[in-house]
Structure formats: C-alpha cells, structure tokens
Simulated scan of single mutants.
Amino acid sequence: MNKLFPLSALACSLFSASSFAAQEVNVYSYRQPFLVEPMLDEFSRETGIRVNVKFAKTGIAEKLVQEGEYSPADVLLTVDIARLSELTDKGVVQPVNSDILEANIPSQYQDTDNEWFGLTTRTRSVYSSKERVGKLGQDFDYLDLAKPGFKGKICTRSGKHPYNISLISAMIAHHGEAATKQWLEGVKANLARKPQGNDRGQVKAIKEGLCDVSLGNSYYLGKMMTDKDQQAWAESVYINFPNQNSTGTHVNISGMAMAKYAPNRENALKLMEFLSSDKAQSMYAEINFEYPVKQGVKRSELVASWGDFKADTLSLDEIAAHHETAIKLLDEVQFDL
C-alpha cells in the first residue's frame, strides 16, 4: 500500500491520479496504517479488489477541494467527528444510501444526510498512576481536573488535537462557553508540563513520575499492553471513565465517507459495507482495542476487562457544532503555551 506521512511534507504529486491503478478502490486516510491496514488487506483477500491508500496527518479536505472532479479518492477514513464534519462542511463527500450500512451502523453514529458513517467508538478517558493516585472514584468528573488537588499533576497532548477539541466541545455543550473557559484555565494551571506528544507519551510520563494523571483515548491502553516496549507504561496506570454519576464518559468515533467524485463508486460502496460488517468490526475490536459500532459484535477480552461504563449520549452533530468555539477558548487561555 502507498503511504503518506504527513501530507504537508510531501509533494502534491503523491496525490495525483496516476499513482492509483484503475478499477481498484482508492482511500485517503487520516487513520494510522497499523489501525486500518489489517481490515483493508482482508477486504482485498475477500473481494480481489486492490486497495490503494494514502495516509496523511492533515490536509485531506483541502487537497480534495484542490483536486475537484479530477480527484482519484473514493473512500475517506477519519480519526474523529471533527474530521468528518470538516469533510461535509467543505462539500467534498457525497450521500451514500445503503441498506447494509443502515442495518449495521446505529443511527446515532450516522450523519442525518448519510454523508458520513461511524466505524468504531472510543472513550476520552483519564489515566491515573497506580502508585501515587490509584483508581479514581465513581464520582470522578472531567470538571475535577481543574480542582487544586491536581495542581502540577496533569499531562496532556496539545489542546488543539482533534481528540481534545471534541472533549472540550462536549464540555461547552454541557456547561456553556463561560464555564468551559474557566475549566480550561483551571486545567492549564494544573499541568505538570507544557502540552506535548501523543496519548501514549502521557502515560509514559506517568510511569516516569512526571505527572500523575493524563487524558487519553481508551484503545491506546490496549496497544500499550500488547507492545513489549510499552507494556510497563500501561501497567503503571488505571483507566478511568469520568462522569459516571452525571453525563457519562465522552465518546468519539472513527468514521468513513465517500468522496464526492469517487471514480470507483461501486468498489467504494463495497469497501464501506465491508468495514461495517461483523468481520471488520471484530477485527477493529481484537486488533485495535476499539469499541465496535455494530450491535452484537463483542469487545476484545482485554477491553472487556476494563469494565462497563455509561457513555455520554450527546449527539456527534452537536459536539461538532462547538468545535470553532473550543478552538477560540483554547487560544484565549493560551492552553498550549
């Protein structure tokens, strides 16, 4: 499979139609290779349709606008609702009507106009040091991260990463703009260091004693537990599901959409339907440690061992509607500085 890391660092020619073979299916992906290649490989084995994929960290929506009707892209894979909303806002996707997708993907994880579909869910959890903090209680709330008791104890990646933007957007929806700004100021004041790195890096910092708690997506714990070089990091923390006595833990999705000018629409639809199937959903669960969206598909044994939790039922559309305000608040409090 062809790879792109990141889009901004490579020549635009990498996205030219000539880099894709005809009669196949062409994917632009924000998701990392190790998270999607097993499913794409399985699709090719089952159908004989080759998947050509370009990976990027940023810029897919902008590139699709530039390419217009000459774009080779068929299917777009994204990391969260923010990226999906960006694609629909820029008008670079098309509605997809499929009885299979309708049956496999619950309505809460579909766009009302059928322009995007969720594939997996994950929680924005809080990790806590087993040695210095222990398991956080059932009454622990995201709001608690701004309390004086966490002074100098929090690590996180950039506030402007899509995962954190979505959490902040949900906070705005639940508590309003003013209260969320005050919360962000409190969290910033409690940071052990400047926001940096990725979610796994925050757990590593907990292991090293640089901080005691961190924000992180749930599936990263599974990835660390099964990586011999990172297992010790994972074993140093508990995973916690905040807001169990109130709104429920914030949940985000990975998702997919069909490109507006998909040249291989039939194959694109086959791929999208496959990714919503029992086979692919089980692979997401077992390989990626994500929560499948399809009803009846079991969690992996490891994920199930983390326990059940109440998820926030806030609609993804409402979360997306607050993204610009979330970014504005991050700038106002200078969260990343």
Results as ranks from 00 to 15, higher is better:
Ala21Ser: 06
Gly91Gln: 05
Leu337His: 09
His250Gly: 05
Asp141Pro: 11
Asp278Phe: 15
Gln108Ala: 12
Ile239Asp: 01
Ser8Glu: 09
Arg265Met: 08
Gln244Ala: 09
Asn2Gly: 03
Asp139Val: 14
Val96Tyr: 06
Val293Asn: 00
His175Trp: 14
Gly134Tyr: 11
Leu143Asp: 03
Tyr284Asn: 03
His161Met: 13
Ala205His: 08
Glu42Phe: 14
Leu184Arg: 04
Phe150Glu: 00
Pro106His: 11
Gln108Trp: 08
Lys90Phe: 08
Gln23Asn: 14
Ser8Leu: 13
Ile60Gln: 01
Ala146Val: 07
Phe34Arg: 10
Asn264Glu: 05
Ile168Ala: 00
Thr112Trp: 13
Gly68Phe: 13
Arg157Trp: 15
Ser29Arg: 14
Ile206Thr: 06
Met256Thr: 10
Glu67Tyr: 14
Asp80His: 07
Ala73Glu: 03
Glu301Gln: 03
Ala234His: 09
Ser71Met: 02
Phe20His: 04
Leu215Asn: 00
Val79Leu: 07
Val27Tyr: 04
Glu37Asn: 12
Ala321Glu: 01
Cys155Gly: 05
Lys279Met: 05
Asp312Gln: 02
Arg157Leu: 12
Asp113Met: 09
Ala179Arg: 04
Tyr28Cys: 02
Tyr30Gly: 00
Pro263Glu: 01
Ser169Cys: 14
Gln231Ile: 15
Glu46Gly: 04
Thr88Asn: 06
Leu64Thr: 10
Ser71Gly: 00
Lys130Thr: 09
Leu76Tyr: 15
Arg31His: 04
Leu101Phe: 14
Gln108Glu: 03
Ser315Lys: 06
Phe43Leu: 07
Val203Asn: 02
Asp312Arg: 14
Leu275His: 07
Tyr30Trp: 15
Gly222Tyr: 08
Thr120Ala: 05
Val333Glu: 00
Met272Glu: 04
Arg132Glu: 04
Leu330Met: 10
Val237Phe: 03
Lys54Trp: 13
Arg299Phe: 12
Glu46Trp: 15
Leu271Phe: 11
Leu40Phe: 14
Leu221Asp: 03
Leu330Val: 09
Glu301Leu: 14
Asn114His: 11
